[in-house]
């Protein structure tokens, strides 16, 4: 009796989680003039409308540029820090970890206000640079946690073998460690990109007037009312933020299999 009840309950909870999102996707193909039920046939017109909407396309370019730059910077900082935390015995390791994941512990609004006022004080106003700085600091803890978890799974003795066979530390890093690390780097970068791409609260504080990212563009469009165009934009975002990680995970798995490292749990 008990297990079946739990199964039904879990199915209902997951329906609650996914059904509203499925409705967004469904309505984005609605041919009707208004973004609502009843459905009036299948149509791609709202995706065409998106493509022709300059504001939306600008927001897309901003979000993509921000996400890419943020992923590159955040992953570089995160991988280096993770290497230090996993591979070396350093005093105060716990404290250091807490400091590095502090951006998760501070409420996003507070972080947004602090960064805005401080950067403004040192002469950097609301700008793309402020957005980038904010996104990097916001994504860094996630990158560190993901990369650390993967690093633990890479065995040290392969590197030691390379060193004992006469490779220099630099050669060892580029020929042995980095290839083994690639799945972790890719996972971290993807994580940083999607988190940056999704971010809205901090972005609303940091963005200069007139500049929008995709989430803030949706937020601004919602002020009027929900429209099929917003649903279409939502569908595109779902495809991007769900499809990309799935693709990334599949790629990482193939890479890992090729290099003979078993997936760390």
């Amino acid at each position: 009796m008990g297990w079946n009840l739990i199964r039904v309950y879990a199915v209902l909870v997951y329906l609650f989680m996914f059904l509203p999102v499925a409705v967004v996707v469904l309505l984005s193909f609605n041919a009707s003039q208004f973004g609502a039920f009843p459905m009036a046939g299948f149509s791609l017109r709202w995706f065409v409308a998106l493509w022709e909407n300059d504001a939306v396309m600008r927001a897309f370019r901003t979000s993509l540029a921000l996400g890419f730059l943020c992923a590159i910077i955040s992953t570089t900082l995160g991988v280096l820090a993770s290497l230090a935390l996993v591979r070396y015995r350093i005093p105060g390791r716990n404290l250091l970890t807490t400091v590095l994941i502090a951006p998760i512990l501070v409420p996003e609004v507070v972080m947004a206000v602090a960064l805005l006022l401080f950067l403004n004080f040192v002469g950097i106003g609301r700008s793309f640079i402020m957005l980038l700085a904010g996104h990097v600091i916001f994504t860094l803890p996630f990158v560190i946690l993901v990369v650390q978890a993967r690093l633990v799974g890479i065995r040290r003795d392969v590197e030691e073998a390379a060193l004992s066979l006469g490779a220099s530390p630099r050669q060892t890093f580029f020929a042995v460690t980095l290839p083994l690390l690639m799945p972790a780097v890719a996972a971290g970068a993807l994580f940083a990109f999607t988190i940056s791409f999704d971010n809205i609260t901090g972005t609303l504080f940091w963005k200069p007037g007139g500049v929008e990212t995709v989430p803030t563009q949706i937020f601004a469009m919602l002020r009027h009312s929900i429209s099929p165009e917003i649903n279409a934009l939502g569908t595109v975002m779902i495809v991007l933020t769900v499809g990309l990680p799935l693709l990334g995970a599949a790629l990482a798995r193939r890479l890992a299999m090729k290099s003979g490292v078993s997936e760390p749990r």
Binding site: L100, A114, L117, I137, L140
Partner: peptide
């Protein structure tokens, strides 16, 4: 050396602003 960029970023962009 490995830690300093990340620590520097957190210090400069979060702790000092707080």
């Amino acid at each position: 050396i490995l830690l300093s960029p990340a620590l520097g970023a957190v210090a400069l962009l979060l702790l000092l602003p707080l």
